[in-house]
């Protein structure tokens, strides 16, 4: 039962981390390599509001999310819009921005164990005879709720439908009067805020450290590649495959194999279906 309980927790955590990246790529075809930096930025901003200004935790978190969303949208408007469609340039530019943000934090002295966020609850629950700390249980519940909200937003709101239209066929969406740049800007803002939401949920489990930004980017990339770049449903399914692969390998082979097993899972999926589980980029070539 340990494997089931912690497998679900690990998978939901991975899905949360990857969702923002998948959303931005799905809509604007823009690989946001500053995703991890925006994750860490939310953590440091929340910490600053909470500890330096003494604001309430919820208010600090909401303000941090708004700021992170605006930073993400600002990055798109100021830099990425100019190179949109040039895949390599997009990767290099967004990675450079992420690097500057993360190393900037390090340069400004954001290092050490001082930067932590309080957990949502200090209780411990017993689920299926397995003890689990309350915060992790809340991560699963709130994570599922965020995914539901995102689904509802993209299916029942005008902006959400426009975003989906863009994701399906940008040219057709433009013919219907949808402003492609505005939607990409919104997607970048929303994707950045999603990176921020995952930070608010997951950072209280440990410390806010610069290195986390790099880890998060790698995790998001792995999940999105297996799921199929641009597919939100694929990202969630991939998060469960990798999440369970890690937990099963830790339980039966040892913790040191968890990275190896998750990499094997990625390689296996890519050998069998190079576009990822729900990817459509090379679908035609694969069929041929």
């Amino acid at each position: 039962m340990d494997v089931v309980v912690y497998g679900v927790i690990n998978s939901v955590s991975l899905a949360l981390v990857a969702l923002g990246f998948a959303l931005v790529y799905g809509i604007s075809r823009l690989p946001n390599f500053a995703h991890g930096a925006l994750y860490v930025t939310t953590g440091f901003i929340t910490w600053s509001f909470l500890k330096s200004l003494g604001l309430n935790y919820v208010i600090s978190g909401v303000l941090a999310l708004i700021i992170t969303g605006l930073v993400g949208a600002g990055i798109y408007r100021a830099i990425l819009i100019r190179i949109r469609g040039m895949a390599i340039s997009e990767i290099i530019a967004s990675y450079a921005i992420g690097l500057a943000i993360l190393e900037g934090f390090r340069y400004w002295g954001f290092k050490g164990m001082t930067y932590t966020l309080p957990t949502f609850t200090k209780k411990t629950f017993i689920l299926l005879d397995v003890p689990v700390d309350g915060h992790r249980v809340l991560v699963v519940v709130l994570g599922a709720f965020v995914m539901f909200l995102l689904w509802a937003f993209t299916h029942y709101t005008k902006v959400g439908l426009a975003l989906r239209g863009m994701a399906q066929d940008e040219r057709a969406a433009m013919m219907l009067g949808i402003d492609s740049d505005l939607m990409a800007l919104l997607a970048m803002g929303l994707g950045s805020a999603l990176a921020g939401i995952s930070a608010l949920f997951l950072l209280p489990l440990g410390n806010i450290v610069v290195e986390k930004g790099y880890d998060v980017l790698i995790q998001a990339l792995a999940v999105c590649i297996v799921g199929g770049l641009g597919s939100w449903a694929g990202a969630i399914l991939a998060a469960f495959i990798i999440g369970f692969a890690q937990v099963v390998s830790t339980a039966y082979l040892g913790a040191k194999f968890q990275m190896v097993v998750s990499l094997i899972a990625i390689l296996t999926v890519l050998i069998l279906k190079p576009s990822g589980l729900f990817g459509r980029q090379k679908e035609l070539e694969e069929r041929v």
Binding site: V3, S13, V132, L202, L205, K256, Q258
Partner: peptide
């Protein structure tokens, strides 16, 4: 592995 964030198992 270095960077592990969940030690529950």
């Amino acid at each position: 592995p270095t960077g592990t964030t969940d030690f529950s198992m």
